[in-house]
Write a protein that binds this DNA or RNA. Structure first.
Length: 283
DNA sequence: TCCCAGGTATTTT
DNA sequence: AAAATACATGGG
């Protein structure tokens, strides 16, 4: 366990916004402390003053995982300036209300399972379902003086060796249990190599992910964005559809996508996150 | 009781 | 090829 002190401009990192943005389901705030879990890793952190944060985690994990998880190598100020100077009022308002948004790079396996669960589901129930999965099938990490008790996300092996009924009963997974079991078995049998996905570009990754049963256009976009950090992903769910029809009524969906893809090339995923957060929390 | 949810697979036109 | 429908489950 190490304490890592970081200087971060207040407008560049706001975990409360990130937590409420629908991209992550294992980050939360309790009193003045934030916690995040991803795969089998854990971290807690606090804001010390307006630009100072203290992160508490294993130093090796910090260097090899959490730094990228928080996308701290990226500077969002350039794209933010572009948005503030654009003539798209909905997008500007989105940014004004989501200062400190970042696109996380989460554990890939966990991201895939998480967004298979997300289909035809609501956000509170997605979080509950994941929490149940972790406590039923994950590995328990006892509380220490430095970290609270937590459960790791169940590995592919931990899920692949379950009966379908065990995975379905009392988990709220519903019909998605079958997708998850099949996928876990494919990973365990090495029919699918998750690490190989990191070498693919957006189109290749989308194609590959959609060969998995239970993963279609929207879920594969979420996996590309939150697990592979392919920022040109632009997941369109019910909320984003609402935005396009209500707040960009002058465009057809095709025209709208052309506008986003040309004007905000390689930042589409970030744009989507700002819009999604604003629509869900303010409008 | 019916309706919906960060959709997808399958069946039917 | 496009359009309807089934799918589990809990919450409003």
């Amino acid at each position: 366990m190490s304490k890592i002190i970081c200087t971060i401009p207040h407008e560049a990192f706001n975990p409360e916004v990130i937590i409420q943005s629908g991209q992550v389901f294992r980050m939360w705030k309790h009193k003045e402390t934030y916690y995040a879990l991803s795969g089998d890793k854990s971290i807690w952190f606090q804001k010390i003053d307006c630009k100072t944060w203290e992160f508490h985690t294993n130093l090796n994990d910090w260097i090899n995982f959490w730094w990228d998880y928080f996308d701290f190598s990226s500077d969002y100020s350039g794209i933010n300036t572009k948005i503030m100077n654009c003539s798209d009022d909905f997008l500007k308002k989105s940014l004004e209300n989501s200062q400190g948004m970042r696109i996380l790079k989460q554990d890939l396996w966990e991201t895939i399972i998480t967004f298979i669960i997300s289909q035809q589901n609501n956000i509170p129930k997605i979080g509950k379902t994941i929490s149940i999965l972790c406590s039923k099938f994950g590995t328990k990490h006892e509380a220490t003086t430095e970290m609270i008790e937590y459960y790791s996300f169940p590995t592919a092996e931990q899920i692949a060796n379950l009966r379908l009924s065990d995975l379905q009963n009392g988990t709220m997974l519903g019909y998605r249990a079958e997708y998850i079991l099949k996928f876990a078995q494919a990973v365990q049998n090495e029919e699918i190599n998750l690490n190989s996905l990191f070498s693919l570009n957006y189109e290749e990754a989308m194609r590959k992910l959609q060969t998995i049963k239970g993963i279609g256009l929207k879920v594969s976009n979420c996996i590309c964005l939150y697990g592979l950090h392919l920022m040109e992903s632009y997941p369109i769910d019910t909320w984003m559809s609402k935005i396009i029809s209500q707040d960009y009524a002058q465009f057809t969906q095709e025209e709208y996508l052309f506008y986003i893809n040309s004007e905000y090339k390689s930042y589409q995923g970030y744009i989507q996150q700002l819009q999604f957060f604003y629509k869900r929390n303010f409008k």
